[in-house]
Design a protein around this nucleic acid. Structure first.
Lengths: 337, 337
DNA sequence: CTGAAAGCGCTAACAT
DNA sequence: ATGTTAGCGCTTTCAG
């Protein structure tokens, strides 16, 4: 059980001051005009004994932790998991660690997580905002902590964000269904005040208005358990036998929909056509394969982390925020053929 | 931009010493015989101004971080994601935070992650061990840090662990296929020296030996990209047209298998029956639904976190480790009917 | 019952 | 070019 070495141990062993060691370790040797020879010797010794600076002490002293906090709705959802992994990769390459957690769209849990992140002196935040955390975000900003949002954003708070053109995406998908001759097109979504969900709903409404067909909207409460979310879907479809096409607000709902349609012995696409917002590995494999609105996952992750890294490097409190809107792709598969 | 309050600020505002505040905040008021009245007053004030102790400073001082490090192969895999979430829940209720990451079965990445966790003074470790980290684990143990493994374990290192009876599970599943009249049963798995994979392979071999049929084994290299793992599966099935049943070593492989079988126009179960190790939401929905060996996810998570919490609370260096083996369930569905 | 003071490991003014 | 030293915010021994 070897004692952990400290910078003082290193300094003593080498008969120099810990300041010198600190400067060398932080790459400020040149600046401080420390001899090449000494630098060499210190670095060699440090490597030899495997000394690692205590990051806790470092953070306490500097106020920086080289950590980025990432909050998404559900890290086990493929969409977020993929983005998280890519963000993590890029962050690592730039010397940042990622610490992430799922908000489960729960305002209170999110508040606690933000508090915990603050507590750990996280340097920057990447957040998919649930409703009602406006104040918490505002407080982060006020304290000069960079915040980048994605997926959705909070209209009343000025932050950088990266989103997709949700409205056009569902508008376009709905139009596609209309053009295929469907009359009774339903939109099943989560009840949510989040911008992304509102926009998706609006896109659908707009297309339906143009098609002169009535809207058929079902908003499901977002819950932890599957069953109480699946049942309303089933009830809704039972109440509206006329439905001949469904657009789902995200991939979780699409899975629910597939289950219900199977249980109801509805044929896809003969009885009901369907489109999922968010693609999923499994949609391509399913029989019939499922038409989906695919988000540019790689681009989203790239943009998010790049913006944040830029903010982290330039601490000027620039008031102009970046708002990036990316485009989705409608992947047409068998469920709408 | 309000200045963060420190314990000194609290003490000054109340005209008492920071020691007293510290004692009260750490519930040692009784022990130190501090007046009820003062305790009340301090707590009230603390809540009022929203003071939160700086956990960095606390950790630096105490050496404890109240954090548990969780390392699994792939946090976006449903199996691990579900376990992680449940572990997180229970940990929170006991005052611990979880910080997790994916090893991707990469030894070096795992070593770096362990180093990072150590650096952050993580109090305890939950690890699904990749190959070759024996020494790193040993070093953790030597330094008195509790380590609980699950899914697999490292035979040469004494730690607590929670696993399932892998050998019996595949033995049983293979027997089931044999009893159904299948003769050419293949086992497709990841090439791995991990105990769980070895045991699964052994279970299959044992059942095949009893059935007097030849074994048909394909070991795939674990990679980041899907395609180079899918291709070998396809090649293998093309080379062995006689195969009439397949047992997959885990759910990721099963997904690959389903894709290949679809591309090859093989009917399931008429041409080929199949069983997946690890269940998946999607297997029940797929047509035909997929027979799977389901692990008791909830039980695994419960056991893991409970053992770790116990170790964390009783710091006696008890040498006797807990080895828990849980049972799986063969969920028979249409893919083997 | 309460306070003074040391110290966890590190950084960075300020000296020299 | 290198050393001295004062904290970052907290816990905890030791003295009252």
């Amino acid at each position: 059980m070897k004692k952990k070495l400290s910078i003082v141990d290193i300094a003593n062993s080498l008969n120099i001051s810990k300041t010198t060691v600190s400067f060398i370790l932080n790459g400020r040797a040149r600046e401080k005009r420390i001899s090449e020879e000494l630098v060499e010797r210190v670095l060699k010794y440090v490597k030899e004994v495997g000394y690692k600076p205590n990051s806790l002490a470092k953070s306490l002293r500097t106020g920086k932790s080289n950590t980025i906090g990432l909050l998404v709705q559900d890290i086990s959802n493929n969409f977020y998991a993929t983005i998280a992994r890519q963000i993590e990769d890029l962050a690592y390459k730039n010397g940042y660690k990622i610490i992430y957690s799922s908000t489960e769209n729960d305002t209170q849990k999110t508040q606690e997580l933000i508090a915990m992140f603050r507590d750990r002196h996280v340097d920057g935040y990447i957040i998919v905002p649930p409703e009602g955390i406006e104040e918490d975000i505002r407080s982060l900003i006020k304290d000069g902590l960079p915040v980048v949002m994605f997926d959705g954003y909070i209209p009343k708070v000025k932050t950088d964000y990266v989103v997709v053109d949700n409205l056009f995406s569902t508008y376009n998908a709905t139009r596609y269904l209309v053009d295929k001759g469907h009359k009774h097109i339903a939109f099943i979504t989560f009840k949510s005040g989040q911008t992304q969900m509102i926009e998706r709903l609006d896109g659908y409404k707009q297309a339906m208005k143009e098609s002169k067909n009535p809207t058929l909207i079902k908003e499901i409460d977002f819950l932890q358990e599957d069953k109480p979310m699946i049942d309303p879907v089933r009830d809704f479809l039972n109440e509206h036998k006329e439905i001949d096409a469904i657009l789902f607000g995200n991939n979780r709902l699409s899975i629910f929909g597939l289950k219900v349609l199977r249980d109801l012995n509805k044929r896809v696409p003969e009885d009901v056509a369907l489109i999922s917002f968010d693609d999923y590995e499994f949609f391509e494999l399913y029989n019939p394969s499922v038409t989906a609105i695919a988000q540019p996952i790689g681009d989203i992750a790239d943009n998010v982390i790049n913006i944040l890294l830029r903010r982290l490097n330039t601490s000027n409190d620039n008031d102009s925020k970046e708002h990036i809107t990316l485009h989705t792709t409608l992947k047409i598969r068998k469920s709408t053929e």
